[in-house]
Design a protein around this nucleic acid. Structure first.
Lengths: 184, 184
DNA sequence: TTGACAAACTAATTAGATTAGTTTATAAAT
DNA sequence: ATTTATAAACTAATCTAATTAGTTTGTCAA
C-alpha cells in the first residue's frame, strides 16, 4: 500500500483543519482521516493516536512561530525589533487560532518541544539585550513580555474583549507602555 | 427519591473536582456522579449535560472572582487598589486552576455570564478611574490590564515559565511597570 | 390515602478513540 | 522474473464517555 503520505502531511493537514475549526478540541480523527482519504486506524501508522498528534502539532506550531519571529527580527534592534516581534506573534495567533493555544501548554514536555521553546525564548532575550537588559532583569522582563503577548492574543481569540474599540490600537498602546517601562 | 441534592451542590462539587484535577478536560461525569453518590444519568436532573455543567461552572467561577475582587478593593484606590486586585486575581487562579480558564471563554454567552463579566469589568474600570482614566483611554487600559493578568497566570498555571526565578517577583515587576506607565 | 412530581434508576444508543489482526502494494534481493 | 520483507493500508472488535429513553420510587400536598 505504501502511499506517499508522510507524518508531515498528516500534521500539516491536521493543523489546517484545526485552524479552520478555530479550536483543537473540535478536531476529530474521523475528519482528519477523511480529509486524507484514509480510514481512522491508518492514522496510527503516522502518529501515536490523538495525544501523539497534539504533541506533533505543538512542535509544528512552535517551529512556525520561531521561524517567523527570526525572519521578522533580522537586522532590527530595540523598539523596532520588539514591535515587529510582537506584531508577528499576534499575526501568528490570528493565522493559527486552532493550534496557537498549544504553544503554552509546556507541562509534560519532550526534548524537541523544549528545544524550540528555548529557541523562541532566546530570540526574545536577544531583543531585550538590545535594550541593555541582562541576567535576572532580562528574565523577569521576558516573563512580562510573554504574559502580555499571550494574554492579549488569547483574550482576543476567545472573543473576550468587548467590541467598539480597535483591537490593534489597544495592542500597540499596551506595547508602548511596556517598552516605555523597560527603556533606560 | 427527592434527595437534598441541589444544582448548587452539583456545581460546587464539580468545581472542587476540576480544581483538584487542575484541568477541566479531565473532569468526567462518571467521577462527578460517583462523588455525589448517584449514577451518571441522574446528573441530567440538575444540569443540561456536560455543556450545561461547564456553563454553570463558568458563572460559578466568575461570581467567586467578582466577589473576591470586590472585597479586596473595598476602600482602596490607585496603586493600592490595583495591586490588591491583581494579587487577588492571581490568587483566584491559583486556588481554582481547573475552572480558571473558563472565565475567558466568553464566545457563546448567555445573559447571566455576560452580566457577571460586565460587573468584573466595571470593578477594573473603577480602579482605573481612580488613576484619572476615563472613556476610550480607560477601555484600552483595561484591555492591557486584563491581558497581562490573564497572560501571566495562565502561563504560570501551564508551567510555561522556566524555574529558577521567583514568580511573585516577576508578577510584581510587571505590574509596577504597567502602573508606572498609566500614572499621570 | 391517593395522586402528582421530582429525582433517582436501568438499559440502550451514539460518538469517538484505540487495539488486534489481516491484506496489499512497493521495492529490494535472488 | 520471482520471491520476500515491510510499511501502510484495511476491517472488525473493544473501550470509554456522554447522552437519551423509559421506568421506578420517595415525598409532599390535596
Amino acid at each position: 500500500m505504501a502511499r506517499d503520505l508522510t507524518k508531515e502531511k498528516v500534521v500539516a493537514t491536521a493543523a489546517e483543519l484545526a485552524n479552520k475549526l478555530g479550536d483543537i478540541q473540535q478536531l476529530k480523527l474521523k475528519d482528519l482521516a477523511a480529509r486524507l482519504k484514509i480510514k481512522v486506524p491508518s492514522l496510527y501508522n503516522h502518529v501515536k493516536g490523538l495525544d501523539g498528534l497534539v504533541h506533533a502539532l505543538r512542535v509544528h506550531a512552535l517551529r512556525i512561530l520561531e521561524e517567523e519571529l527570526r525572519n521578522v527580527m533580522a537586522g532590527k534592534t530595540g523598539r523596532d525589533a520588539l514591535m515587529s516581534a510582537a506584531d508577528s506573534y499576534r499575526a501568528f495567533a490570528h493565522q493559527n487560532p486552532g493550534i496557537y493555544p498549544l504553544i503554552i501548554q509546556a507541562k509534560g514536555i519532550d526534548a524537541e518541544t523544549e528545544k524550540v521553546s528555548r529557541d523562541i525564548l532566546t530570540l526574545f532575550l536577544l531583543i531585550l539585550g538590545s535594550f541593555g537588559l541582562e541576567g535576572d532583569e532580562a528574565l523577569h522582563t521576558v516573563r512580562g513580555l510573554r504574559s502580555l503577548l499571550h494574554g492579549f492574543v488569547s483574550l482576543e481569540l476567545a472573543g473576550g474583549f468587548a467590541l467598539g474599540l480597535e483591537l490593534t490600537d489597544s495592542f500597540e498602546r499596551l506595547l508602548s507602555t511596556f517598552i516605555d517601562g523597560i527603556e533606560p
